[in-house]
Design a protein around this nucleic acid. Structure first.
Lengths: 152, 152
DNA sequence: GTCCAGTTGTTGAAATGTGAACTGAATTGA
DNA sequence: TCAATTCAGTTCACATTTCAACAACTGGAC
């Protein structure tokens, strides 16, 4: 028998905020994806390029990359395969660990990122940064950091 | 020829916040989905049940429902079909508009929602509400409302 | 009435995502 | 040394989502 505990429902206000959050997130994602589409990218692929561009030799172990872009390993395998066939990245064996695979951004991948970045940054501004009061934006940052913080 | 405008890059701080946002959202979604799984639901289906439960006669036009849960019409068609085969909702023709279809929540659907709700609310608390400073949570609400507000 | 542009919802195929099983390699520890 | 375990990445089977095409209907304009 499961112990029944009276649920701690959300207040009307908390519920309103929670729903705004769901709506807002969906809205932001839709806009970002829409504005990346002309470049043939979605947000997931864009983030992969960003993380690769920030690395030594534009190269990262698959599992490391997977964690940074919050994709499952399986999903990353597929995503990278697609990007490979588009010529944006390449796979190379990892010399130090023969289980390992490095994803490396090609020059074409880097050029695409450089092309897409200004438009993408504008999207982020129009969808979020420029719409929100700066103090609230700071608070949003603190809130999301608290959410991401590992505590359990 | 496209006019080149110097992009307004994000400041380091803005970028940090933006990345926290992406991380936080992903984290929240993962947790909510994981904790709904034991009920055989994902967040999309759960939201459908919630919106139906808040309506007269637990019934809503497909297009109306689609908008409220932010799913494309096509996606909602598929989702509702699945839920129908699970016995959670039913489709009935709309009497006033012969193009229309109403989705109605079944008693089983309602029972499942009532079952799942306490756990789901706990998830929302653990993943977000209880983790965040109340003032920051308020600010998050304002920010997300600003994001969702239709201005263009 | 008749036209017709727009709306509603569905379909089916292709693209993408998921989770479990699997392969081969590294590591552990007796 | 070498079996057992863990790890990295892929693969497979399947579920879900997307996109374009479509059929049925509506509500004016004329």
């Amino acid at each position: 028998m499961t112990t029944q505990v009276e649920p701690r429902w959300l207040s009307a206000e908390q519920q309103r905020i929670w729903r705004s959050f769901l709506n807002g997130v969906a809205r932001i994602n839709d806009r970002l994806d829409a504005e990346l589409r002309p470049f043939g990218l979605d947000l997931g692929e864009y983030e992969i390029l960003v993380h690769l561009s920030e690395c030594e030799r534009h190269m990262l172990r698959m599992s490391d990359l997977a964690e940074r872009v919050r994709q499952s390993r399986s999903r990353l395998t597929h995503t990278i395969s697609r990007m490979e066939s588009k010529g944006l990245v390449q796979r190379v064996a990892c010399p130090s660990d023969r289980r390992g695979v490095n994803a490396i951004m090609t020059p074409a991948g880097y050029r695409l990122l450089v092309d897409a970045a200004p438009s993408h940054v504008e999207s982020v501004r129009r969808a979020l940064v420029d719409r929100v009061d700066p103090d609230d934006f700071e608070a949003l940052g603190r809130a999301m950091e608290a959410v991401s913080r590992v505590t359990d």
